[in-house]
Design a protein around this nucleic acid. Structure first.
Length: 424
RNA sequence: GGAGAGGUGGCUGAGCGGUCGAAAGCGGCGGUCUUGAAAACCGUUGAAGGUUUAUCCCUUCCCAGGGUUCGAAUCCCUGCCUCUCCGCCA
C-alpha cells in the first residue's frame, strides 16, 4: 500500500511513476473520492463533537441534580443524523481503500523501463556453461531414466503439475535444502524458522497476495478462510505484523524452508513439461526486516546470499534487474537470479529478490521505534528465494549429468548424501 | 469434544453507564546527584486521522463486528483468541 499522504499531496507525480509499469492511476476518480471524503469526514466529526459535548453537559447537569430533559431534547435528534453521516463516510472510505489497495508500489529509480522480461537488464554472469561432448538431457528424461521422478504418479495422486520423487533423487532435494539452510544460518546470520503452511486472510493481505491475487492461491478452508501458502514470505513476514520492533533488534533476518503452493491460474500451457512449474514445490526463503535507510544495502546483500548457494553448487547463472513492466506488484526493485539449464539451453529463474520498502510494512503495520524521533515508523521488508529447491534440483541434475544419464553429486552436497557420490 | 475464567497503552495490571484516553507499576526519554555508571529522587512518555503557517482545537481507537443509550472500556448479542480443568491424541 502506498502512503495516503503521498497520494494526496503528489498524486500526479505518483501517476507518472506508476505509468512506467503500464499502470494507469485513475486520478479523477481518486480526486473525486478524496474531495468527498474530506467533506463528509469534517461533517461527521462536527456532529460527533456536538453530540459528545451535549452528552457531557447532561452528565454534569445530572450530577448537580438538575432537570436534564431540555438538554436531552436538544441532543436526541443528533443520533440519526450521525448514523447517516457515519455510514456515508464508511462507504467513501471503503471505496478509497479498494482503490488504494489496488495500486502497485512505486519503482526504484534504478529500475529500467520496459514492458516484459525481454526488457530486463542483465547485471552480471557467473560461471561458464559446461561444454558437453554429448547431447545433454533435460531433467525429465534424466529423472524418468533413473526411475526416481514420476509425473504420472503425481497425476494419479493429485493432478497435473505434481510429481513424485523417489530414492536418491528425493534425498538429493533434501540435501539441497540442508545446504541452503546451513549456509544461511551459519554463514549469513539468518534465524531458522518453522511456520504454518496455511495462512489466514489477514496475513495474505499483509504481504499483498490478497485481495488482488486470490486466484493464484489454493484455498484450503472456509470460516476461517485459510490458504496454502504460495511462499514462506507470507508467514515469515507476518511475524512482524502489528508489531513495533525494538530498534536494537533490527535487522531481523529469517530463513525458512517450506513447501509452496500455487494454482498457476494464468499459466495454462506454460512449462507443462517437467518440474519447472508445479503446484507444489520446495523453497528456502530469506526475509529481512530492516531500518528504512538500510534497505537498499540489505537488498544487495540478500541477493548475494542467494548467489552464494549457486556458487557453492558451481552452477552458472546470471543476475538480472527486472524492468518496470516485469517487477511485481508490491516490489520497488527486484533482482532475479537465473540458472543455466543445459536441457533447455537457457537461463531460468531460480531466485527472485525484492525490496518492498515500506509497501508491505504499511499494510502489515510493521513498525520500529526510531530512537531519533521516538516515534513508531514503518520498517522496510525484503525477501528472496535462497533458492527455489525444486528448480535447484533440476539445475544440479542437468548440469551434473554424464552420458549414461547418471547424476554426479556436487562437492558441496556430499556431506548430506551419506556417502553417495553418483546417482545412477 | 465437555466445563469454567478472561481479552485494557511498548509490557504487567486497576477501572460505580457520565471531565476515562483510561489508576498504579515496569520499561523508554529528560533532569538532579556522580569522575563515569548504578541506585535514589524529580519530571515526562499511547496510536491513527482531520483542521491549521503553527502552539491550539477536534474525531476515532480499551480483541473484532453488531445492538441498547443523550452518553459504553463498563450493559446485551455474535465471532475470534488466550488460560485452567477433564476427555482424546502425534
Amino acid at each position: 500500500m502506498l502512503d495516503p499522504y503521498l497520494l494526496r499531496t503528489e498524486l500526479v507525480h505518483v501517476q507518472q511513476q506508476l505509468s512506467r509499469r503500464g499502470y494507469v492511476l485513475d486520478v479523477d476518480t481518486y480526486t473525486a473520492l478524496e474531495t468527498q471524503r474530506k467533506a463528509i469526514q469534517v461533517k461527521t466529526q462536527e456532529l460527533q463533537n456536538e453530540r459528545n459535548s451535549g452528552s457531557k453537559l447532561i452528565g454534569q447537569a445530572k450530577a448537580r441534580g438538575e432537570d436534564i430533559q431540555p438538554l436531552l431534547d436538544e441532543v436526541q435528534h443528533l443520533g440519526d443524523l450521525l448514523k447517516d453521516a457515519e455510514a456515508e463516510l464508511a462507504d467513501v472510505q471503503s471505496k478509497m481503500a479498494d482503490l488504494v489497495e489496488g495500486i502497485p508500489n512505486i519503482l526504484d529509480d534504478s529500475v529500467p523501463n520496459g514492458k516484459s522480461d525481454a526488457d530486463n537488464l542483465e547485471i552480471s554472469r557467473w560461471g561458464e556453461p559446461r561444454q558437453f561432448t554429448f547431447t545433454p538431457k533435460d531433467h525429465v528424461d534424466l529423472g524418468e531414466g533413473l526411475k526416481q521422478m514420476d509425473f504420472e504418479l503425481g497425476v494419479k495422486i493429485a493432478s497435473a503439475r505434481f510429481v513424485v520423487l523417489k530414492g536418491q533423487l528425493a534425498r538429493l532435494q533434501r540435501a539441497i535444502i540442508q545446504l541452503m539452510l546451513d549456509t544461511h544460518t551459519e554463514e549469513h546470520g539468518y534465524d531458522e524458522t518453522y511456520v504454518p503452511f496455511l495462512a489466514n486472510a489477514d496475513s495474505l493481505r499483509g504481504t499483498g497476495q490478497l485481495p488482488k491475487f486470490e486466484a493464484d492461491l489454493f484455498k484450503a478452508n472456509e470460516n476461517p478462510a485459510l490458504y496454502l501458502i504460495p511462499t514462506a514470505e507470507v508467514p515469515v513476514t507476518n511475524i512482524v505484523r502489528d508489531v513495533i520492533v525494538d530498534a536494537k533488534h533490527l535487522p531481523l533476518k529469517y530463513v525458512c524452508h517450506s513447501p509452496c503452493f500455487r494454482s498457476e491460474a494464468g499459466a495454462y500451457g506454460r512449462d507443462v513439461r517437467g518440474m519447472i512449474r508445479q503446484h507444489q514445490f520446495e523453497k528456502v526463503e530469506l526475509v529481512q526486516i530492516v531500518r528504512p535507510e538500510d534497505s537498499q544495502q540489505a537488498h544487495e546483500e540478500l541477493t548475494a546470499h542467494a548467489e552464494v548457494i549457486l556458487k557453492k553448487l558451481n552452477l552458472p547463472y546470471r543476475k538480472v534487474l527486472l524492468c518496470a513492466g516485469d517487477t511485481g506488484f508490491s516490489s520497488s526493485k527486484t533482482y532475479d537470479l537465473e540458472v543455466w539449464l543445459p536441457g533447455q539451453g537457457g537461463y531460468r529463474e531460480i531466485s527472485s529478490c525484492s525490496n518492498f520498502r515500506d509497501f508491505q510494512a504499511r499494510r502489515l503495520q510493521a513498525r520500529w521505534r526510531n530512537p531519533e524521533t521516538g516515534k513508531p515508523e514503518l520498517v522496510h521488508t525484503l525477501n528472496g528465494s535462497g533458492l527455489a529447491a525444486g528448480r535447484t534440483l533440476i539445475a544440479v541434475m542437468e548440469n551434473y549429468q554424464d552420458e549414461s544419464g547418471a547424476i554426479h553429486i556436487p562437492e558441496a552436497l556430499l556431506p548430506y548424501m551419506g556417502g553417495i557420490t553418483v546417482i545412477g
